[in-house]
Nucleic acid binder design. Structure first.
Lengths: 216, 216, 216, 216
DNA sequence: TATGAATGAGTCTTCATTCAT
DNA sequence: CATGAATGAAGACTCATTCAT
């Protein structure tokens, strides 16, 4: 269930990308994630990339096009670990309990976030302002995530491990906790005060108890 | 424990505000929340407010000043229900169980959000880009929230209602669930598919079980 | 039948125009007529007008808007002498013969051209490239000119002064000769070689004989 | 007196032209005539020609060079039917009357225009903006046309067919009528409303009467 | 010979802010 | 207090031209 991660490194090792093109991407990602899309000028990107301003527009028709080209591949991989053929079989084989599933999920996405932190930050920051992004997010992330998670939820509900609530509600509560965990870890709480192992464990137990049926 | 809500209406009934000033605020709030701070021009605000562009700058030194003046009072009230004297006594008197507390909290903040939705949206959208906002948020919201919630957590931990984890962890998990609830309700899920009462209940039970000690 | 001429001077004495606005118009007219619309930069206009570049766009939404605002009023007046109420009566009273009519027409338009030469030049140069201009020209000039000239032609045809050909043909031949006269006078032939009175006379006689019925 | 016409086809069958070069010419002619020289980008020409942008500049030093290379040969042929050795003899033999001459001239130039319409359009549109073009036009067209037409005019004046006015005036009046005829036919009046034969005849008669001496 | 990536000066346009009225 | 004309710096984007391959 290890999704094929996309990382900036990976992105930049694409054969099709010119050397300059890679520099443009790196510079844009850095600036966008630091100051936001709107507050970053193409001039600034060009300078940081060591490239003429015109070169940016040779490769990306508009500034927005550049943004979308940065964010799209990462968005596509956001739900990767869920998009597996024969999900049921995989669950059967590899995730005996909902706990196993949760643990794998968190671990997997943690790696993903560590590799793509900047781009995810850009995605989160710009989604309110870019309708195209929102559309793509709905289509490629939200819908598919819900679809797959429904199967997972039903699977463990039938096994009697989690309570009978609508899958959407289960998804909401699970996702809140996990995303909240990541936001705390990566955006809010300084590393010094964060005991990763313990917090992971608390989060998993919180979800398990929250959705669990019975006695601890 | 009903905090003194700030609402746009309230904001606009301030005696100190000129009629024009109120119109400017309303126009700015509307535009900022719809298109974002960066994408809103002062010219546009002036037109929508039926005011000359110069008038805006007579009341607010800069555009950013206008933003801060909109967001600051709401930010101050974000944690209002927590900021009470003699919190212990209040807990004693009014919130016999953690469940009572949670329920009151959610209800109270729901009202607040319904009155101040636009401004909260602005706050969320701009926090990544405005260091001043982030600073104010930390100082007036995060710190105080943590401080007060610690007391609450300890109170119910001592009563044996919730498990013994660091208050910050308890806060993180509780807040994740509640904020996730509000984000789903107000930003993601269309009203038609949202059964408010049931979802509230599920959220409360999820937190109670998640942090609860024992048998259900 | 003296149309109310529009001249640059007149244009610039409009009360509604700011001082800066007038300077912008003068500068734009000069540059457009010399180098053409496409080859004139707004920066250049601003400098020549002694105005900030932004000021141009405060008064004219786009560069094209500026062009149209220059050309439109002149275009409207191009056919002015034809657009008279009770054309028949006027012909009756004031232009006993087609010759009188021609002579008056040429004299009147000569004055017009002398006052509005630059703008007419712009009009001629840009009509091939600006569909809006072409449209306006058709609507406000061509159609109305044809309509009125038809009455004139029929009037003198009925009087037996000019031959019975379709008015459109008569218009084409008359206009060719007169416009050709003006183009030669103002655009091609250096003043030194041009005997105005004689050439005017030759042109009139050429048209009269060309369209005339009978013996000289 | 049939001038050796230059047509696009002819132009393109030149042996010295590469295949790519021909494609560039065709593409450039099409774009220049449709949108004007200034509004056509070399990039666009390259795409339309199926050629790399650099290739254009391998054959034509600059964009303006390309324009001149398109327009120059056509300009050279504009006055072709006049540039004949022993003009007097030819007139003697082939054009007994001024009417014969006019008729042949119109017919001949009509063919020329039909073959080279696009390029002539480019010439007309760009002459106001390109001093080089204007210079070439004066030198190769205007001067020679005037020179030759003078002989023609004198010839028929001596025969008593046309009135005694300066040849330049005769040229102006004749040319106005013929060019006006072509402009109406090709640029202004929609084909449906144009009776070619009749209009040609009217134009010829107009000129003949206009310049003629006596009774019809 | 042909390519097409790269350039950087230049284009039109927007915008927050100022200031005389 | 309020206005709105004026500013000029900055923005995204275009384009003819060059040059290494």
């Amino acid at each position: 269930m290890t999704g094929e991660e996309i990382s900036i490194e990976f992105l930049l090792e694409e054969d099709e990308l010119t050397d300059k093109q890679k520099k443009i991407l790196v510079a844009a990602i850095e600036s966008f994630s630091e100051k936001g899309y709107a507050a970053t000028s193409t001039n600034e990107i060009a300078k940081k990339a060591g490239v003429a301003e015109g070169t940016i527009f040779r490769h990306y028709k508009t500034k927005k096009d550049l943004l979308l080209n940065i964010v799209a591949p990462v968005m596509a991989k956001l739900v990767a670990p869920f998009v597996i053929r024969d999900l049921d079989k995989v669950l059967n084989k590899r995730f005996d309990t909902f706990e196993d599933f949760l643990r794998a999920m968190i671990e997997n996405r943690r790696e993903f976030i560590e590799k793509n932190g900047q781009i995810i930050r850009i995605l989160l920051q710009e989604i309110p302002f870019q309708p195209e992004l929102r559309e793509q997010f709905k289509e490629h992330v939200a819908t598919r995530l819900f679809e797959r998670f429904t199967k997972v939820a039903v699977y463990y509900q039938e096994k009697g491990e989690i309570i009978d609530i609508p899958p959407l509600s289960a998804l909401r509560l699970t996702a809140s906790s996990i995303i909240g965990y990541f936001i705390a870890k990566y955006l809010i709480i300084p590393e010094s005060e964060w005991d990763d192992e313990a917090e992971t464990e608390r989060t998993i137990q919180f979800i398990l108890n929250g959705l669990g049926k019975g006695t601890k």
